[in-house]
């Protein structure tokens, strides 16, 4: 029988994000669930597990797409420095 790898995502507390915890190997879905429970739930440390066949995981790591070398500061909070602008508005207001 062929073994398959399954990635396991664990929710540790109700409402929390499902976080990748590791993987297991199993011959079928039913046993995958069982093994996942044994490895990631036997101490009551999970409220929910997602068990996903590795072949079904699509991966993207291309830095040209994820971390493009262009300046993207206009998109972020750090791209705007307001201290001096605010100070000069206040100064003008107090001066008038």
């Amino acid at each position: 029988m062929d073994m398959h790898v399954y990635e396991v995502f664990q929710q540790q507390k109700e409402g929390g994000a499902l976080v990748h915890s590791g993987n297991i190997q199993a011959p079928d879905d039913r046993l995958a669930i069982h093994y996942a429970r044994e490895l990631y739930g036997r101490r009551g440390e999970s409220v929910r597990l997602w068990v996903i066949p590795r072949d079904h995981v699509l991966e993207l790591t291309d830095p040209d797409l994820l971390k493009p070398p262009f300046d993207r500061s206009y998109r972020s909070v750090e791209g705007y420095r307001l201290r001096d602008k605010l100070a000069s508005v206040r100064a003008a207001r107090e001066g008038s």
Binding site: R75, S76, V77, G79, Y80, L82, K85, L86, V89
Partner: peptide
């Protein structure tokens, strides 16, 4: 959203200057 607010504040501050 925090970027939206900061950018909006920046527009307003620039105009107020």
């Amino acid at each position: 959203e925090s970027f939206h607010i900061k950018h909006g504040y920046d527009i307003v501050l620039s105009m107020m200057n």
